[in-house]
């Protein structure tokens, strides 16, 4: 992982409850850079996040609310949080279900600004 991306992702993973963060190529579902706790399958997070955000954006476009900027998938054992950088990449965090979503969202937006 390059130093540039390391610092960006570390700011996200420092939030309590975050299990991993990564930068993903949206169209391909491949990892650009990641910072993950043990047991988190980076390639699965990247591939599935790319796919689920594409599906979500198709619903958004059909309902007239435009391009994806932020996605929050809440599940019983964890959350997936995604910010689109606006330049073909996504910044992704996977976290505990009780994580401070607002704080992670802020860090993801900061990261997206730095990545694009």
């Amino acid at each position: 992982m390059s130093d540039r991306f390391k610092g960006i992702l570390d700011a996200i993973t420092r939030v309590r409850g975050v299990r991993g963060a990564m930068i993903v190529v949206w169209q391909d579902g491949l990892i650009v850079s990641d910072s993950l706790m043990e047991g988190v399958r980076g390639n699965a997070v990247a591939a599935l996040t790319s796919s689920v955000t594409k599906y979500a954006e198709s619903v958004m476009l059909a309902s007239g609310i435009g391009r994806l900027q932020f996605l929050h998938l809440q599940a019983s054992n964890g959350v997936l949080l995604v910010v689109a950088t606006g330049s073909e990449t996504l910044v992704v965090a996977i976290a505990e279900p009780s994580v401070n979503v607002g704080l992670v969202r802020l860090e993801l937006i900061r990261a997206a600004e730095a990545v694009k």
Partner: peptide, 11 residues
């Protein structure tokens, strides 16, 4: 589909 998904499920 995407290269990421195909690679993931290939594994």
């Amino acid at each position: 589909s995407t290269p990421g998904l195909v690679q993931l499920f290939f594994e």
